[in-house]
Nucleic acid binder design. Structure first.
Lengths: 187, 187
DNA sequence: TATAATTTTCAGAAATTACTGAAACTTCAA
DNA sequence: TTGAAGTTTCAGTAATTTCTGAAAATTATA
């Protein structure tokens, strides 16, 4: 397959950025390619278009599948595997959020929990634990948020994102609302 | 300086995670060390405690300063530089968010803007641009959100984080509320 | 200004990570 | 079964990143 210069530069750029997003250059390129492609592609299409080895493509696709960012599909009467990027932009965003949480936050959270179980044995530990507790609490809140976001419908996600300049407003709403809800519930 | 086993394991863990968070192992360890330390440390303290070379510490501290995560300070009558992690957990969280946005989102956003300026020259580009437009819009919203979050006081950030499980509720109510607010404002 | 204390730089070594391509494996159809 | 079409694996190599340590630079003090 041949890409226009414009699209090539996007694909290459995504490769460069790849490392900052947690996968390597070629995986980034492969994903970009799949995202912009109207049709599903075979591993060979990808290897050719990007000029990388067939073996590398196989490994890269495995990685992308582990992120649940690409899906295999098949064409009738053709036994090759065809790959495409999963669903909507929201699906992608959710998956990336989820995977990064798993890789970047969960392990630390679990270590922190362990460390915080021990009683501090001296003033150095005493002080350290205070900081670690703060980090723990923050990460735990972030985790809750991402869980919550996972559950929202695309519609609500959209609303929430567009609401940005209204974070202040959201906070205001919360007071009134939560207040109301709680009063209602406790009645 | 000597760390208890517990703290050592935290520092080492932070090193391992470092790469997932955008800096290398030793930079991660250095930061962890500074975060849990009650007193500011000299570059030599750090090199000794972590068993890494003085030169490496110097480069690492530069990196951490570029993230604005550590500050230099001085002790009267001592010309050594002392380093400490910046302020509160919120300061840290904000800085990390900000830096990651700069490194992970901004460059892509700017490339996307460029690519989207060109009129699609064929149906391949046509389709690609649609997807790119979606990605662009999403990233732009995320950017706005992070800007908004930067401005919030620790108090409000706290409230917002704690709100997580209520996001759904708030969104449901949103229509009524935004309606109400706007009516109020336009009066 | 000289020198001692401290920090930074950077060339090369070490460690890590990514990539290739040929061989092994799997799957399907005849 | 056999073999053709396709995929995966993985040992070895290439590329990249990180780290060291000695030399250069900086800064304060006498």
């Amino acid at each position: 397959m041949n890409l226009t210069p414009n699209l090539t530069s996007f694909v290459m750029h995504f490769g460069e950025m790849g490392s900052r997003w947690g996968f390597n250059r070629t995986v980034g390129q492969m994903y970009a390619l799949l995202v912009i492609s109207a049709e599903p592609l075979t591993a060979n299409d990808i290897a050719e278009t990007l000029n990388i080895s067939r073996g590398n493509v196989s490994m890269g696709l495995k990685e992308l599948q582990s992120w649940q960012l690409v899906q295999v599909s098949h064409q009738p009467g053709d036994r090759k595997d065809y790959f495409r990027a999963i669903g909507s932009i929201w699906d992608m965003a959710k998956r990336v959020m989820e995977e990064r949480r798993k890789r970047e936050i969960d392990p630390t959270l679990s270590l922190l929990r362990d460390v915080l179980l021990d009683k501090p044995s001296n003033s150095q530990e005493q002080h350290a634990q205070q900081r670690l507790q703060e980090i723990h609490d923050l990460l735990e809140s972030v985790t809750k948020w991402t869980n919550e976001l996972q559950r929202l419908s695309p519609d609500n996600l959209n609303t929430l994102l567009k609401l940005s300049s209204g974070v202040g407003k959201v906070l205001d709403m919360k007071d009134k609302f939560i207040g109301k809800e709680e009063r209602k519930e406790s009645r």
